[in-house]
């Protein structure tokens, strides 16, 4: 029998925690331990050699992180291990955060949706992560737990740089809290093929009393377009909002698209958001 094994994977070490407390103790004790959830990005990184870590903490045994709940104050609480399929099946998500359901529908095929997790999308912090604009537009809060306690970080302060987050090495993302949202929610992903392509540009927005608009893949981090929001909110002509948007994004040329296309598309998405949420 010939057995094919990726040399990278065969050198992996895997910790399987018995409980959340156990997982947090393991993280506290070992700085080099990387949490893994659905592995949809992580395994690709290992195979391509772009991920140097070799010691992993498998979060799948932590069933308590798979829940979708609504608190009495209306806050939607999404566990870090909630999958995209769960989001699509959840009446709570459909009611409180339909733009998340829209995003989940465009992430991967069925198999990836059955596997990929919200906590993984946040923790991975790809600038093109499809749910990140949704949580930015929703003003969500990331709940981080460590053996020393719990810390709540507003999502606007969570992404620090390219694939860099506010999560410390001894912390786990346990939940995402989404406050009640008043207003129309909107989501759009632009890519070559919905199920198999990473976004060229992705955007989400809320239009109600306030206006929020967030974008992915136009800067090193997923970002709120505060200047564009401000222009829209002060009833300036759309061309002013476009100018504002172009001034705050920093798109790049890469294998998926060009900076020029991304800037133009970001403006087109802003126009579409504004006309479709009227």
């Amino acid at each position: 029998m010939t057995t094919w094994t990726s040399p990278a994977i065969s050198s992996m070490r895997l910790e399987r925690p018995r409980s959340l407390a156990h997982a947090l103790d393991l993280l506290e004790a070992d700085r080099g331990l990387t949490p893994m959830a659905g592995c949809t990005d992580l395994y690709v990184g290992i195979h391509f050699g772009s991920l140097k870590q070799r010691r992993f903490l498998d979060l799948q045994p932590l069933a308590s992180l798979r829940k979708i709940q609504k608190r009495p104050d209306g806050t939607l609480v999404l566990g870090a291990l909630v999958t995209y399929s769960q989001c699509l099946d959840s009446p709570l998500v459909a009611r409180a955060l339909p733009m998340l359901a829209s995003a989940a529908k465009e992430i991967g095929g069925v198999q990836i949706r059955n596997r990929g997790t919200l906590g993984g999308n946040l923790g991975n912090a790809s600038p093109a992560g499809d749910t990140l604009p949704v949580f930015l537009a929703a003003d969500a809060t990331v709940v981080l737990a460590s053996a020393r306690g719990v810390r709540r970080v507003p999502i606007s302060q969570f992404f620090l740089g390219y694939r860099k987050t506010a999560r410390r090495h001894n912390e786990l993302i346990t939940e995402i809290e989404v406050p009640p949202i008043a207003g129309k929610q909107w989501f759009r992903k632009v890519g070559t093929r919905a199920a198999n392509a990473i976004s060229k540009v992705v955007a989400a927005g809320v239009r109600g009393e306030g206006i929020t608009f967030a974008l992915g893949a136009v800067a090193p981090v997923a970002m709120r377009a505060y200047a564009a929001e401000c222009a829209l909110g002060s009833a300036l002509p759309l061309s002013e909002a476009h100018r504002a948007l172009r001034s705050e994004i920093t798109p790049i040329d890469d294998l998926r698209s060009t900076a020029a296309y991304r800037a133009r598309t970001a403006c087109a998405l802003l126009t579409q958001f504004w006309s479709e949420t009227r």
Binding site: T40, Y43, V44, I112, N114, R115
Partner: peptide
Amino acid sequence: DMGTCGCCTVLVDGRARLGCLTLAA
């Protein structure tokens, strides 16, 4: 072997899952 092609799809409790991205454990 990176979750793109779907060739390794198996059913886990009746749901389609990618064999290449799911740990046996």
